[in-house]
Design a protein around this nucleic acid. Structure first.
Length: 434
RNA sequence: GGAGAGGUGGCCGAGUGGUCGAAGGCGUCCGCCUGCUAAGCGGAUGUGGGGCUAAAACCCCACCGAGGGUUCGAAUCCCUCCCUCUCCGCCA
């Protein structure tokens, strides 16, 4: 959520930012709504003051045995006025709040202006794609031939966009999760932030307020799987429970940055994605993801964002997967984000780079919604923290990338060296019977 | 699921209708004292919004789990919901 004072201070700049985002919302009704609200609020406060004074006077006089019936009558009439004002006030407040919750974050100055994904500049490329002496197979073919990936059975269990991993496929998922978690909980000592990530295991079902806190609600409600019977929602990413871990609290500056890593299944309805990426592990209703979350100070958040992104890149480099980093332009950046880098891994069968991680700085957009603040050492007055997160990495897509990049002509797949210990020493997954 | 107890400031905890934004303690900060540290002594210390101001001081409004209600007046009484704890039952 944007700070209403920031909007008031420079509505032109905010409107400009919305335009850059290709967002058609206008600030006019927000501005007029806020103006009316503040007038109503002042009137209401004055009446409350009057009522409080009367109540105090009545109490005092009563103790002295004086007659207070006239004052009580007066107070009653003030109360009816307060009540009518209050209902109006509440209505206006809700209207304004609804509008504010639908306003996206303002992109950082360093974010390139652009219309859509075609305008996302590449920051850098690492690793070189292998050249294949044959037509490389897509990962779903490889997985099926190896007997480790089964979409047909998953469809019977749960419908489309679900998968079953079997044998070494399932083991590969576990190995990747463990490798990533180990890397992140081990990194940091030699970094500017000076500390490794703390691993957390969190609930996969959360209340709606948590999703509002991180920005998924109210705008993207239809993207979430719901359990209406219990008013709970399946998390679309670990970002939601992990960031909200510190909701409604004031942290000590000395605690910052707080760095978490969490491996969870993620659940997405993919409501707007009908017919898109219908094959393979790329777009599933359920997938495993290792998520990095930082809660940090505003002064360092952009340096921290670079560091977080480097941490995610470290996994791709460790696995030997070719990838590139792109910087999302104003027209493509996510609703809650002020700046986002996407990491895209090379997928040989399609001959394209595909998103495997998205690393964002939300500045105080989430922390204002979730009320996560810290007390600066010098000023003592609480300030909103900045929150960051990024995938480190999406495990399902990493499996897909490994199968495609490290496939061999005989149908086998070579396991990256760093994963071998996690695979129980297995260096290669081979087709059954070979 | 059944029975009971309870949710108060950064933390612990007192407070059953007005003088309570809230005793006391811990913590934190400032000062004093003291070879150092600790202890001791004195003072300060909730959050959000508004007014005034150069900035403060100061003043006003709201907040004692959330939302309603009763009342001139609610942390305190009533209702609903959420959560925590104890015991019993069930269970990975």
């Amino acid at each position: 959520m944007l700070d209403i004072r920031q909007i008031l201070a420079d509505p032109g700049a905010v409107q400009k930012a919305l335009q850059n985002r290709r967002e058609t919302l206008s600030l006019e009704s927000v501005l007029s709504g806020e103006q009316e609200l503040s007038a109503l609020r002042k009137r209401w406060e004055a009446l409350r003051e009057q009522r409080n004074r009367l109540a105090e006077e009545i109490g005092r006089k009563k103790r002295n045995g004086e007659d207070v019936s006239a004052r009580m009558e007066e107070s009653r009439s003030v109360n009816t006025e307060i009540a009518s004002l209050e209902s109006e006030l509440r209505k206006r407040e809700e209207e304004l709040q609804t509008q504010l919750l639908l306003l996206p974050n303002i992109p950082h100055d360093s974010v390139p202006v652009g219309s859509d994904e075609r305008d996302n500049p590449e920051v850098h490329r690492r690793g070189s794609p292998r050249s294949f002496p044959y037509e490389p197979l897509p990962h779903w073919e490889i997985g099926a031939r190896l007997g480790i990936l089964d979409f047909d059975r998953a469809a019977i269990l749960s419908g489309s966009r679900f998968s079953v991993l079997r044998g070494m496929g399932s083991r590969l998922e576990r190995a990747l999760s463990a490798y990533m978690l180990d890397q992140h909980t081990g990194t940091g000592k030699d970094r500017p932030s000076g500390k490794p990530y703390t691993e957390v295991s969190v609930p996969l079902l959360v209340r709606g307020e948590m999703l509002e806190g991180t920005g998924q609600f109210p705008k993207f409600r239809e993207e979430s799987f719901a359990v209406p019977e219990d008013s709970l929602f399946l998390i679309p990413t670990a970002e939601v429970p992990v960031t909200n871990l510190h909701r409604e609290s004031i942290l000590d500056e000395a605690e910052l940055p707080i760095k978490y890593v969490s491996c969870t299944p993620c659940f997405r309805r993919e409501a707007g994605a009908a017919g898109k990426d219908t094959r393979g592990l790329i777009r599933q209703h359920q997938f495993l993801k290792v998520e990095l979350v930082w809660i940090t100070r505003p002064e360092t958040s952009y340096d921290d964002h670079e560091e977080l992104t480097r941490d995610a890149e470290g996994i791709l480099e460790g696995l030997g997967l070719p990838y590139r980093r792109i910087s999302l332009c104003t027209g493509d950046i996510g609703f809650s984000s002020a700046k986002t880098y996407d990491l895209e891994v090379w997928m040989p069968a399609q001959g394209v780079y595909r998103e495997i991680s998205s690393c964002s700085n939300f500045e105080s957009f989430q922390s204002r919604r979730a009320e996560i603040r810290y007390r600066p050492r010098d000023t003592k007055k609480p300030r909103s923290v900045h929150t960051l997160n990024g995938s480190g990495l999406a495990v399902g897509r990493t499996i897909a990338a490994i199968l495609e990049n490290f496939q061999e002509q005989d149908g086998s797949v070579t396991i990256p060296d760093v994963l071998v210990p996690y695979m129980g020493g297995v260096r290669r997954i081979s087709p059954p019977g070979s």
